[in-house]
Structures are given as C-alpha cells and as structure tokens.
C-alpha cells in the first residue's frame, strides 16, 4: 500500500510529474508515493524521472477500465 496517493488525473504533462516531485520532496526516505495520471506522456516521463533522480519505481500499471495509470515510486534518498 502506498503511503500517499497523488491524484493528478485530468492534469496535462508535466502536471502529474510536478505533483509527484512536490510530494516526494516533502516525504520521508522509504515512503511510497502513488500517482494517478490520465496523461499518456506522464506515464512515460515519470518512470524516466524516477530512474534519473535515483528513486525506485515500484510499479507502473494502466487501469484499463478507468483509462489512467497508477505509478508508484519509493523515495530512496
């Protein structure tokens, strides 16, 4: 279970990523943040950012019925 869920559905790129970064900055190391995004670009961009920033991608999956992505990130530093 994520420690916090950021619902960025309806927000365009780079909105969901920005929301994630804001939340991660405030979170404790080890916390898992889940972002909900209906933006296709963010589904590709967020995992890229996670890799580059040295955090850990827990999962990235599409909710086909709802037409949005669930992307979870663990803050490692």
């Amino acid at each position: 279970m994520p420690d916090k869920v950021v619902d960025a559905r309806g927000s365009y790129c780079p909105g969901p990523l920005m929301e994630l970064i804001k939340t991660i900055k405030k979170a404790d190391v080890g916390a898992v943040i889940e972002v909900l995004s209906s933006d296709q670009g963010s589904a590709k961009d967020i995992p890229e950012w996670v890799k580059k920033s040295g955090n850990e991608l827990v999962y990235s999956e599409k909710d086909e019925a709802g037409g949005y992505w669930r992307i979870a990130v663990k803050k490692v530093k």
């Binding site: 790129c13 780079p14 990523l17 920005m18 970064i21 804001k22 950012w49 580059k52 920033s53």
Partner: peptide, 11 residues
C-alpha cells in the same frame, strides 16, 4: 516553460 520547470524541479 515545460522544459524549464521540469529541469528546475529535477535539481
């Protein structure tokens, strides 16, 4: 604005 803001927020 997209490039600048993502870059700034990535450090």
């Amino acid at each position: 604005a997209m490039m600048g803001s993502v870059a700034a927020m990535s450090g």
